[in-house]
Design a protein around this nucleic acid. Structure first.
Length: 598
RNA sequence: GCGCCCGUAGCUCAGUUGGAUAGAGCAUCCGCCUUCUAAGCGGACGGUCAUUGGUUCGAAUCCAAUCGGGCGCACCA
């Protein structure tokens, strides 16, 4: 890339320019080197510079060269005078880049003109199917659904901001053995008034009471089973009751998703795939992928990989035994593996995605390993064209370290959880901002309460269990949603009070160290979003935003904005504007809203 | 028994191809509001990264073993 080209282009980030120039220099020194691992990343410690590259050390090791000498040769070939104040070779062979203020200013200026927000939108968008939330019909949504819902939503939003096509699909549990009991309950125990009042509670009551009856009396279990068989055979009455139960449940789902601000492009429940289950098993059997096993049909290993890595093998008493995936029960019924395979085939045919993300809890790892492997045996060519990712997460625990339950031991309903978050937030808003009208307080409490729940869920590494804590979540200090939302309102208010117009063509000047630190953080927004999408870890974004909030706070502390003289005033207002924009967009990627006042 | 995950400050947790002196919040202590939102900022205190060995210029990160914890192991999803 010729020098200075980046200035006139719409480049939203600096590190790709450094990377491509570094690659060019490396090619000049080592024409045949593999440069795929060459990366330029922000330095961990700003004292060392703004960006660093470590690749020279590993390349030197590969080529059995002296790393410091190689680094020196590469630096000699690097022309970065337009971007960097200097490039240093440090320690055993680190390359440290110190960015010129003018380079930061140019990127910020382009952002101010609205050309980008430090994010590189995909030039070749991928289609990604995101499967998440998946609540069950006739049951209340509970805490167990929040991680999947919040994570899946955040990943979908982030992928879209990066320019990818996303198909969100809610694979609801609308089919299964529980409907036998629900049908019996509906026909014999239904309380119409209770159904009017709270449909889900009534359905839950029916299920619990029939379930108890079945446990006590095998004859009751048989009657439930008979209702299920009738439903599956297409009995008109049972079908219409079943559809009504789905409709009532969907009303509940829609209410909750509405509150959470979560939308699905598709809601294709398990029942949608019923017509394909038989053919899928037939196809698997015809191809020899599935075979009879104790009266059932199951997918076995083809022995092509070592047993240790084979999801269809298990070791017992030193011997490797088959651990097949069951696709048809001995009574002829199908199970969730069958549905998952049919679903997978449907998604590939319908949307041709390059990637499918399954956002479920970690206990299903074994299942998905088997389903993905079974699909590969079934349709190798299709499997080769798609990346199937199980995006798994840990459990939510109570303060006692055990799975999160109410005091009486019941699961915590999602609706109650959201209510309590808003109530607690409202109490804080009333205390902090008694000057605001009640309606405005309520709206702030809504945004803050929901944000707090989502943020607490997204902040920990998704694979670890986390402890649910009202106090920590709604705390006003520390790495929490309310803190980030507060920093947004501060920046936004400065922009308003300053009467700043981003289109005014204000010139940005980066001089104070706090301005520089803030600029550096802003410019690195896109790197973080890319990492979130790549590893399906929104917590990277949480930590980035927390750091950004810290930098902006220190900037206000050290650099007066409204009280400064022009042109400094406009330059700093521009920084506030961009900070607010990135905070809003970043929180937006997490599905968290902001309020103009707090 | 086999497999997956985890063990980091008193507590709750981060830690991006292995990278520079391991970070944050809470708690404790000390500063800073007649000055753009103090829901804030700065500072102090606090760690044998479970243990032991290995790989290498370099290990919380990779490998092996041990100890401790969670979860999963075909006709539920």
């Amino acid at each position: 890339m010729p020098p200075n080209l980046w200035r006139s282009s719409l480049l939203p980030m600096l590190h790709p320019v450094l990377e491509s120039r570094l690659r060019a220099a490396l090619t000049a020194v080592l024409p045949d080197a593999d440069l795929s691992s060459v990366q330029v990343r922000p330095t961990g410690d700003p004292k060392l510079g703004d960006y660093q590259a470590n690749a020279v050390m590993s390349l030197a090791k590969e080529k059995r060269m002296n790393p410091r000498q190689l680094a020196a040769e590469v630096v000699a070939k690097l022309d970065l005078t337009d971007l960097c104040e200097g490039v240093e070779v440090a320690g055993p062979g680190f390359l440290n880049f110190r960015i010129r203020s003018s380079a930061y200013e140019a990127v910020l200026q382009a952002a101010l003109r609205g050309e980008h927000l430090f994010v590189d939108r995909a030039t070749a968008p991928r289609t990604v199917v995101v499967d998440f939330s998946s609540p069950n019909v006739a049951k209340p949504m509970h805490v167990g659904h929040i991680r999947s819902t919040v994570l899946g939503d955040a990943l979908s939003r982030t992928l879209r901001v990066l320019g990818h096509r996303v198909e969100t699909d809610n694979h609801i549990g609308d089919w299964g053995t529980q409907f036998g009991m629900l049908l019996i309950g509906w026909k014999t125990l239904l309380d119409r008034e209770a159904l009017e009042r709270d449909a889900i509670a009534e359905l839950e009551r029916l299920y619990k009471s029939v379930n108890a009856a079945c446990d006590a009396d095998p004859a009751a279990r048989e009657r439930a089973k008979a209702e299920l068989v009738k439903l599956q055979a297409g009995d008109a009455e049972n079908l219409s009751i079943w559809k009504e139960m789905i409709r009532l449940s969907q009303v509940q789902f829609d209410t909750i998703y509405g509150r959470l601000g979560v939308k699905f492009d598709h809601t294709l429940g398990e029942s949608f795939y019923n017509p394909w289950l038989g053919p899928v098993v037939q196809d698997l059997a015809n191809l020899g992928v599935a075979r009879d096993s104790d009266g059932a049909k199951a997918v076995f290993s083809d022995g092509s990989i070592p047993p240790k890595e084979d999801p269809f093998k298990i070791q017992r008493d030193g011997e490797w035994l088959d651990a097949p995936l069951l696709v048809q029960k001995s009574d002829g019924g199908f199970n969730y593996a069958t549905t998952d395979l049919a679903t997978l085939e449907y998604r590939l045919k319908t949307w041709a995605p390059s990637e499918i993300l399954y956002v479920t809890d970690g206990r299903q790892q074994g299942h998905f390993r088997q389903v993905f492997a079974a699909f590969k045996l079934w349709q190798p060519e299709a499997a080769a064209r798609v990346r199937l990712v199980h995006v798994w997460f840990g459990s939510i625990l109570g303060e006692d370290g055990k799975p999160f339950k109410t005091r009486s031991g019941d699961t915590v309903k999602l609706a109650d959880l959201l209510d309590e978050a808003e109530e607690r937030a409202l109490a804080v808003v009333r205390e902090k901002r008694p000057d605001l009208p009640a309606a405005e307080q309520a709206e702030i409490a809504r945004v803050v309460g929901l944000g707090a729940i989502k943020y607490q869920d997204l902040l920990p590494n998704r694979q670890s269990d986390y402890v649910f804590s009202w106090d920590k979540m709604l705390a006003l200090q520390g790495n929490t949603a309310p803190y980030l939302q507060y920093q947004y309102t501060r920046a936004a208010k400065l922009v308003r009070d300053g009467g700043f117009d981003p289109a005014s063509g204000a010139a940005i000047r980066i001089e104070a160290p706090e301005e520089r630190a803030l600029a550096r953080q802003l410019v690195n927004f896109g790197i973080v979003l890319a990492a979130v999408a790549e590893e399906c870890r929104p917590n990277y974004l949480c930590n980035y935003l927390y750091d950004l909030a810290g930098h902006s706070s220190r900037f206000y502390e050290a650099c007066p904005v409204l009280k400064s003289e022009e042109p400094l005033r406009s330059s700093r207002l521009a920084l506030c504007h961009l900070t607010a924009a990135v905070l809003k967009q970043g929180l937006g990627c997490l599905g968290i809203g902001v309020s103009e006042k707090m």
